[in-house]
Design a protein around this nucleic acid. Sequence first.
DNA 1: CACGTAAAGCAAGTGCACTTGCTTTAGAGT
DNA 2: ACTCTAAAGCAAGTGCACTTGCTTTACGTG
Lengths: 199, 199
Amino acid sequence: MVDAEVKRRPGGRSARVRAAVLDATFALLSTRGLEGLRVAEVAERAEVHETSIYRRWGSRENLLLDALIEVSEQLLVPDTGRVRDDLIAYARDLAAFLATPLGHALEHALAAAGDDPDARRARERYWVSRYERSRQMVTRAIERGELPDTVDPRLVIEMLVSPVHFRVVMTREPIEPEMPARIVDALLAGVVGSSGTPT
Amino acid sequence: MVDAEVKRRPGGRSARVRAAVLDATFALLSTRGLEGLRVAEVAERAEVHETSIYRRWGSRENLLLDALIEVSEQLLVPDTGRVRDDLIAYARDLAAFLATPLGHALEHALAAAGDDPDARRARERYWVSRYERSRQMVTRAIERGELPDTVDPRLVIEMLVSPVHFRVVMTREPIEPEMPARIVDALLAGVVGSSGTPT
DNA sequence: CACGTAAAGCAAGTGCACTTGCTTTAGAGT
DNA sequence: ACTCTAAAGCAAGTGCACTTGCTTTACGTG
């Protein structure tokens, strides 16, 4: 599941410990949930000393962040040949993922993460990677001539995904199935041009 | 500063305690910051027993939520006569508020709040009130004939504010001064029609 | 194969959010 | 004024994240 990529001591104990801890974290996350997960329990299950966890990750928060970020790499960027369909599918997949317990946990870990160097690094790495992949949908549309090259991919992606995150983290309302399409239509044609027809 | 609106015992001790605690919370929030604020310290400063705080609010989180929500009532809804200007001004004000320490604190309190009945109530009250006020910008535009009545005010507001909250809570990037205008233009005319000109 | 070092193990402790069982007080209704 | 009760005060305790000073282990290098 987890494949390490360690710094100083490539193949050895460090890597084993890291993998064991992350595996234990996932296991306990699914049984105990985000709130119920105790660091001591992770340590016990990973057969590692609690101190080792704190020395490597610094805090429970950072451990969760590190573990959960790997999960979201599953999210694939669709390529249907039409921007509208790509964006709608992407927003739907995102909403579906964020509705899972793991998705919820990731969102809350990201929102709660502190400002220490470790957390900062993890957060940045995450958003850069996410953005690099998702912008493809827009750049491909521009190459295709479907969108003018004056369009800013970053803005489009931000306006696409932020309402979804917003509902999950801030208002905690469910995302209706038709919401992704309404967002995309408003985004592509403007509210005047589109948002009347509640598909 | 805080004006109570108490349930069972209108004018008496309850109200005094509530006000004293909330005042102490604000005072310590500005000196100690969100992280540094300790419940015991609030109790001491408010000259109230710590237990009383826990009995009334249930948790530190809920106390913060209750205190901070009152602050955001400051945010006024502009009425310039043109939707575009209203929306831009509103997004700017929001971004400016969220950039303050109090704004940051509110966002994180909202994001971190749990799912107990108290937190749920506070959150819902907050968003309902915020939404009721901000939708005015859109409904007025519809009345004016500036926007067709097929436009969904809720969607417009959500798409307007969520990128701002998103940056503050999730990515933690600063909001560029021109971002509000770019969001509004994309929202009104669609990315094809507008977002090329980075004002 | 020896040795130096980074990381893991260990034990003991600290701070703070939150709990609980009981007592005291103040204010609202009669 | 008297009483009834909700809320405040109090004391003692619990759990868990996080810390620290020291020892031990095992990997990588000369």
